[in-house]
Design a protein around this nucleic acid. Structure first.
Lengths: 208, 208
DNA sequence: AGAATCAGTGAACATGTGTTCACCCAAGTC
DNA sequence: GACTTGGGTGAACACATGTTCACTGATTCT
């Protein structure tokens, strides 16, 4: 971001990143709430007391993690929704993108999926809020679809939630999926595709 | 269940129940994984060592809890699917029943919703398995619906998953819902109703 | 009535936890 | 080149945790 980075700032940012990485890693192994400050510090190669130079508590670290994860996810969705080709065959693309994105950013997705319900109060609220933003963002995209153009705002929001929910659920499945099982992956993708197709089928007959 | 219960067996069963209740209560406050053996014992009014007379570990207690919760849920769904009136107007009923059931068995649903993804490996697997059974059970019911009669088994399973997922998601929302907000409750119910209606709309045009 | 059973007790243990403090020494400032 | 700043150190603390053990005393069996 900024240009003039002193060697000190750089080093600080580096260990801050190491702490975040360590926390994300440990979270994927045992859940964020079960992850202790000392474990994070140890894996980041730093003494426990040093943790406090960067975060006041594990909760604060958790919020920073949520922010970082959703930053990644958001830019991914933005890029995808700008691509006209994606927009045309939205369903097949969505199913494919979802799987690929989750596989590539497994740690981020796993963190969001797990801590969305299981985590600490603060982390849970932050994720809920981010997901709500997500639903609204997707709603804007969906409103441009042929059969939806003249739906009420409420209805568009509703269908957007339906989609996001299923995306989250599918992401959870990919996260839980053991590595090196292309057959399972194909099954999840096909299931996601068909579910989305079924939902879209209802669009043209919908009346609020 | 069995008849000849000695005073000892009865007392043992009672404290076992107290341990399960205590664990469920604590789980709804802070999550199962954050709940310690000592906390459970204390709230059950028993010394920590006594815990081991009933369960070998917290994991075992967790599995027993999963079993108990799904027992409740399963009989509820069975009763509902036997009622012909429910079957006719399945959507409105489902939305209504879901909310009521969750409100009445909030602790059970909350446990399942939270620990489904956040819990320990063993608990997570157990819940996943129970949910799979659930999907198959619902699929049998759905297969009798007018527009679905001649779908492939795979497709029926798919739509069943779509429904169960949304039920779980809606249950999560009711669980998170602060008490004494009938407006929010109405909003969730209406959202659930519309989502299900939209899905059902696609049924008649579906081709695998 | 006497012996055996066994759910529950209370103390002890080793270990992991969050948090604090005085201290160090390289990077920055004057 | 001396002075200040501040990220990182290592030791110490008070406390919560899982697990063990010999024990007690009411219930059950013979």
């Amino acid at each position: 971001m900024s240009e003039a980075v002193s060697a000190r700032q750089l080093q600080k940012e580096r260990t801050r990143g190491a702490l975040l990485d360590a926390a994300l890693e440990l979270s994927s192994e045992q859940g964020f709430a079960q992850t202790s400050l000392r474990q994070v510090a140890k894996r980041a190669g730093v003494v426990p007391a040093a943790f406090y130079r960067h975060f006041a508590s594990m909760d604060e670290l958790g919020l920073a993690l949520v922010e970082r994860c959703f930053g990644t996810l958001r830019t991914m969705i933005r890029d995808a929704s700008r691509d006209p080709e994606v927009f045309l065959q939205i369903i097949d693309a969505a199913a494919q993108i979802l799987i690929e994105a989750v596989k590539q950013n497994k740690a981020d997705f796993a963190f969001v999926a797990r801590e969305r319900v299981g985590g600490s109060e603060a982390v849970r609220r932050a994720i809920g809020h981010e997901l709500d933003l997500f639903v609204s963002e997707l709603a804007v995209v969906l409103a441009r679809l042929p059969n939806i153009e003249n739906w009420s705002a409420d209805d568009v929001q509703m269908v957007s939630r339906l989609f996001v929910r299923n995306m989250v659920a599918n992401a959870e499945e990919v996260v839980e999926m053991p590595a090196g099982r292309p057959d399972l992956e194909e099954k999840i993708r096909e299931g996601a595709r068909r579910q989305m197709r079924l939902i879209v089928l209802g669009f043209k007959d919908w009346r609020s």
